[in-house]
Simulated scan of single mutants.
Amino acid sequence: MEKSKVYFTSMKTTSKENLLQKLRRLIKTAGISEIDFEKKYAAIKIHFGEPGNLAFLRPNFAKVTADIVKELGGKPFLTDCNTLYVGGRKNAIDHMDSAYENGYSPFSTGCQIIIGDGLKGTDEVLVPVVGGEYVKEAKIGHAIMDADVFITMNHFKGHELTGFGGALKNIGMGCGSRAGKMEMHSSGKPNISQDKCVGCGMCAKTCAHSAITITDKKASINHDKCVGCGRCIGVCPMDAVKAASDESNDILNKKIAEYSWAVLNGRPNFHISLVIDVSPYCDCHPENDVPIVPDVGMFASFDPVALDVACADAVNKQPVIKGSLLDAHGCKHNDHFTDVSPETDWKVAIDYAVKIGLGSKEYELITI
């Protein structure tokens, strides 16, 4: 089998070419022009960064990609789906506010921002996962599935549940609606914190399956009736409804791969990863720690699996930054991500993604 091509450029610049110009050259050299963008809607999936976290990708990078898409005749938009947890991106209004706070706007990026799963995280499309072992129908943000072309811009960094967050994490988990995220994170149903609940009844009103009742000004969920749609999480004004978040890390990683398959299947896609500010944990945190390794560079490929492997290999070749979490944990496993988060194995998602036909672990690294 022919190796997938992964293109790479370092963060070194000259007086004749800055980082944004290098990114542009990387994307063009990697072959994005092979995609027919003419009058096509192109979703650029990105993480806008949780407020308080400063490791997210700068909007300047997104503008480079959006400008290329427009030059090729396409209609780009930046997108992400709402979060399952409580924070600055729980609903589309807060999510847009957070994006603007972090510098993302039509003025800075040259394209509009559309939250993929709507106002409350419930605007979704059920996408069949053919042969899915864990997911039969992935619940994907509607706007993302409406796009003709799908592009990812990934901040490659560590992650406590998946080992690292790269292309597959950005696609699978990032494109899931609230119910989709709950399906990936949980084997059980949501629960209501009785201490936080004030009995307002918003959850009961939104439940389409009559699974929630109010007794003595406290809500409770009948798990026999609950289908795990997550709507109650989105409407609770007190953040009293919590997902079970009880799925094993290995199955979580496999579900992410199946969700990625649902997003990518049947349409052109292209993937860009920036291995910079490699924080130990996800940009979903409202903080970021010292990077675990020095900045590596920028990567691009049509194969998201090969891209993730190439980025992981590059990180593992880097020296450990003194004072980082990786330095504190020590190098015991010959793998930086395992050393930071030993309770998870990032190779599970890679191997499963190969098994279901998402891409290849074998790659040819082409440096430009």
Rank of each mutant, 00 (worst) to 15 (best):
I292L: 12
I276T: 15
E38H: 04
I192W: 09
N53S: 06
G176P: 11
V340P: 00
N102A: 04
L23C: 09
R231C: 13
K63L: 01
V129C: 12
F8Q: 04
L264Q: 08
G74S: 08
G234V: 07
G163M: 07
G172P: 06
K322P: 02
L54H: 10
P190V: 08
Q194D: 04
L326E: 03
C284V: 08
C207L: 13
G297F: 00
C81Q: 05
L168W: 03
G323M: 09
S245L: 11
N265E: 11
S4Y: 10
G330E: 08
C111K: 10
E287I: 10
E183D: 15
F150N: 05
Q21Y: 00
P291F: 09
V278R: 00
A147S: 14
L78P: 11
S177F: 11
V296S: 08
I212D: 05
H185D: 11
I114F: 11
I251T: 15
G163H: 03
G357K: 09
E50H: 09
T152I: 01
S193K: 13
G52P: 10
G234D: 06
L20I: 09
N334L: 05
V198Q: 07
D327C: 03
E364W: 02
D289I: 06
D67Y: 05
L274F: 06
Y100I: 14
R58S: 15
K40R: 14
R267T: 09
H142G: 01
C232L: 08
C207R: 04
K16E: 13
H142L: 15
T367Q: 12
V305A: 12
D239C: 03
P128M: 07
C200Y: 03
G174L: 10
I32C: 02
K196L: 15
G188V: 00
I140W: 05
G49R: 11
A30F: 05
G201M: 00
G359S: 13
P59A: 03
G88S: 08
Y281C: 12
D246N: 15
L365M: 06
C331V: 09
E364S: 14
P319D: 08
F270C: 04
F302K: 14
A328I: 13
P76N: 06
D277G: 10
K181I: 00
I114C: 00
P319V: 08
G188E: 13
F77T: 09
K347L: 07
A244T: 06
D308R: 10
Y41P: 05
F270G: 00
D345E: 14
A66P: 06
